[in-house]
Measured scan of single mutants.
Amino acid sequence: KWTITVQGEEAIKWAIKVAEARNLDYTVHIDGDQAHITIE
């Protein structure tokens, strides 16, 4: 299990796209213009 933090709307969209493309189980916690994405 690991967490990445991305900043900015484009980076958030990209990170989610990558997680979905790899069929990963993930949760997103949005904090202002940052998102913390935890991959199970």
Rank of each mutant, 00 (worst) to 15 (best):
11 A>V: 04
36 H>F: 13
7 Q>W: 14
11 A>H: 06
5 T>I: 14
40 E>H: 15
40 E>Y: 15
6 V>L: 08
24 L>Y: 13
33 D>N: 11
18 V>E: 14
28 V>T: 02
36 H>L: 12
12 I>G: 00
7 Q>T: 14
23 N>H: 12
9 E>S: 11
7 Q>D: 04
18 V>G: 04
12 I>E: 01
5 T>W: 08
18 V>K: 06
38 T>G: 02
6 V>I: 09
5 T>C: 10
33 D>H: 08
17 K>M: 14
10 E>Q: 10
3 T>E: 05
30 I>H: 07
17 K>G: 12
4 I>M: 06
9 E>R: 08
3 T>G: 02
32 G>K: 05
35 A>E: 02
38 T>M: 07
17 K>L: 13
24 L>S: 05
37 I>G: 00
22 R>Q: 15
33 D>M: 10
15 A>H: 06
38 T>L: 06
33 D>P: 06
28 V>F: 05
36 H>C: 05
25 D>S: 14
20 E>A: 06
39 I>D: 00
8 G>R: 02
4 I>H: 03
2 W>Q: 03
7 Q>I: 14
4 I>F: 12
22 R>M: 15
2 W>L: 07
20 E>K: 06
33 D>W: 07
27 T>C: 09
26 Y>K: 00
37 I>Y: 02
1 K>I: 09
5 T>S: 08
21 A>R: 06
25 D>G: 10
11 A>W: 12
3 T>Q: 07
12 I>A: 02
35 A>T: 07
20 E>V: 08
37 I>S: 01
6 V>G: 02
8 G>F: 05
24 L>Q: 06
12 I>M: 09
25 D>W: 13
25 D>P: 14
28 V>L: 09
36 H>M: 12
30 I>K: 07
17 K>W: 12
23 N>Q: 12
36 H>V: 14
1 K>Y: 10
3 T>H: 08
40 E>L: 15
14 W>G: 04
30 I>D: 02
7 Q>M: 13
35 A>W: 12
37 I>K: 00
33 D>L: 08
28 V>M: 09
35 A>H: 04
30 I>L: 11
10 E>C: 13
5 T>L: 08
8 G>N: 03
31 D>Y: 10
10 E>W: 11
32 G>W: 04
39 I>R: 00
32 G>L: 04
19 A>G: 02
40 E>F: 15
8 G>D: 03
30 I>N: 04
19 A>N: 01
26 Y>D: 00
33 D>V: 07
26 Y>A: 02
12 I>D: 00
9 E>F: 12
13 K>L: 12
4 I>N: 01
37 I>N: 00
8 G>S: 05
22 R>S: 15
19 A>M: 15
6 V>T: 02
4 I>E: 01
29 H>V: 15
14 W>A: 11
34 Q>W: 15
8 G>P: 01
3 T>N: 04
27 T>W: 11
16 I>E: 03
20 E>S: 05
11 A>E: 07
40 E>N: 14
5 T>D: 03
31 D>M: 11
24 L>P: 04
32 G>I: 03
25 D>H: 14
5 T>E: 04
1 K>D: 05
27 T>A: 07
20 E>C: 11
30 I>Y: 15
12 I>V: 06
23 N>R: 09
4 I>W: 12
6 V>W: 02
12 I>P: 01
18 V>I: 13
